Each structure stands twice: as C-alpha cells, then as structure tokens.
Amino acid sequence: MLTVPIRQLGEPERPAVQRILDADPYAGAQIAERVASHGLNWWRSDGRIYGYEPARRIESIIWSGAHLVPVGATPPAVAAFADLLGAEARICSSIIGRSEAVLDLWDRLSGHWGPARDVRPNQPLLVTDRDPLVRPDPDVRLVRPSEVDQLFPAAVAMYTEEVGVSPMQDDGGRGYRRRIAELVKGKRAYARFDGDQVIFKAELAIITRRTTQVQGVWVHPDHRGQGLATAAMAAVVADALRRVAPTVSLYVNDYNRAARRVYQRCGFVSAGSFATVLF
C-alpha cells in the first residue's frame, strides 16, 4: 500500500510539472526536453511521469522510462516512488539525478531490482553561463550529415569506455547509430578531425530553454595529455551559449580528475552532485 498520494500525471498537471522542472533546471533537463517536445501523454513520450502529491499539491516528480529520473524528490517522495516502482519489474537501464534522491531510491529498490552493474555515487554537476576565458579551438566544428560514418566509431569507443558495455551488443548498434545521426542532423554534435579520424567529440544531448547538457565528451587515446581537450571544450561551450541555450551543463565522474580540470578551465562551476545507477 502506498504511504502517500502518488499518481501518474497528464496534461492537466503540466503547469505543476513545469514549476518543479524550473526549480531545478539542470537535474530536470532530461524531462523538460521531453515535456517540451511531447507533453505529458505517455504514449507519445515513451515514459510516464508520476507525481508525489501530499496536501493536494504536487511537490516532486519522477520520470519512468528508459531512465528513471527523480526531480525535486524529498525523502518522503522517494519513499512513495519506491513503494510504487518496487511493485513492478524494472524497465529502466539506469537511475539518474541528484545524488541524495538517487542513492536513497536505489537503497529502497535494490532488494527488488538488484544487483546493479555499477553505482556511481558522486558525479559533480557543473554549469557555466559565460564564454570561456580559454581560446576556443578553431578546428572544432559541427559534424556534417555526410560525416556520421566517421563519427560513429568514436561514439562507440566513448560509450564503451564510459558505460562499460558496447552499444553494439543489442541490435548491432543500429539504434545507437540512429541517435548519433539525429544529433548530427540537429546540429548538436561537435568534432575535431585529423583527416578522416575523429580526435575529439562532444554532443549537446539535451536542450531546454534553460540549459543544454553536454555528454559524450571524448578524446582519442593517441591525443590525450596534449592539452587538446580544454580548447576543444571551450569551442563547444562558446557555440552552445551563442546558438543554443543560456547555460551549458554536464556531469562528470568524480574520479575523472583530468576531465574535471578541463571543465574548470572552461569556466564551469559546481551546481551540486549527481549519482547514476547502471543496470
């Protein structure tokens, strides 16, 4: 039995959902992009949004789809969400969000859904709203649709290195390639090329009216430790701020000290901490 009122939300609750997303535009970016594109009709957005509603006011939400994403989730809300979700089979491939909520949620769900393949408890969430002081690399540019074949091997290498499994294993990489092609078509994929080889890449994986979230940052192993990443990332940030959104955000594993130094040089500052549970 659920401990408090909790229910699936739809279009009538859109103002309340937007209020919660606006209160935390970085943690809620993934949901905000989907709501802006598809509304709250679950059959259009491939996921459901549930609301925690004590005293007849929606205070917290959670997105349940390919990823599980809590936003504004207080401890009572997490307990309610876990009550609901723990009674169902897991459908998500990860739990992502503010570290306190994610770790509390996983503590409550692990007995139902465990074990996880990996738990990353502290991923600094970083944000910037100004041009980097570092001179941007003029050779970093948007990837052209004709260059998807060159970009794709670099994207697979990044994904495998970061996530720990290959995106090729389920369907031969067809779904992942479609995603990369969509990012390129949407002018959301950046790269620096050396001939036909990608030596740096990054994508604007999420875009909302409040922020764009950078993911997939990768430097070819043969070019690491040469100072390439800072100027390359500065180019991404400068273009994204000029062309896409008023802020640029990302999250990074706490143990990736090299990447954290790059982001610091590019002007990113702390906006809290994420956690990710991978299945």
Rank of each mutant, 00 (worst) to 15 (best):
Y26F: 15
L103T: 06
W106I: 04
W106C: 05
G114K: 11
A66L: 07
R209E: 13
I95Q: 07
M1V: 13
V119R: 06
A16R: 14
G227M: 06
E53V: 13
T74E: 08
L9Y: 10
C92G: 09
Y255S: 02
I96F: 08
S110C: 08
Y26N: 09
V17A: 08
H223Y: 14
S146G: 05
A87M: 07
G225H: 05
D83H: 07
E161D: 15
K187A: 03
A275H: 00
F81N: 02
G72T: 14
S110Y: 01
Q213Y: 05
E88H: 12
P124I: 09
A79H: 09
G216N: 06
K187I: 00
P115L: 06
P70K: 14
S146C: 03
T208W: 02
I207W: 00
G114N: 07
G111H: 15
P138K: 09
G173D: 06
I207G: 00
I180K: 08
A271N: 09
A240Q: 10
D239N: 14
V4M: 08
P132T: 09
V102G: 02
Q197K: 15
R120Y: 00
I180T: 09
R261V: 02
D139S: 11
D131P: 00
P115F: 07
V277R: 12
L103K: 10
V143W: 03
V237I: 14
F81E: 02
I58P: 01
F152C: 10
V156R: 08
V184E: 02
D83W: 00
W42N: 07
V184L: 01
R209Y: 01
P15T: 15
Q18T: 09
L105W: 12
L109Y: 14
I207L: 12
L241F: 11
V163F: 05
A23H: 12
L183N: 07
Y251D: 13
G47R: 02
F279M: 04
P70N: 10
E182F: 03
M1K: 11
I206T: 15
P70H: 14
D83R: 09
D118Q: 15
Y255M: 02
Y50Q: 03
K201P: 00
A271P: 01
G225I: 04
A32S: 13
S166N: 08
A157Y: 05
L85Y: 04
L228D: 08
R210H: 06
D170Q: 11
M233F: 13
W106P: 01
Q169D: 05
L68S: 08
A258L: 03
D171M: 11
S110W: 01
P246K: 11
A271V: 07
P75N: 14
P5V: 12
M168F: 04
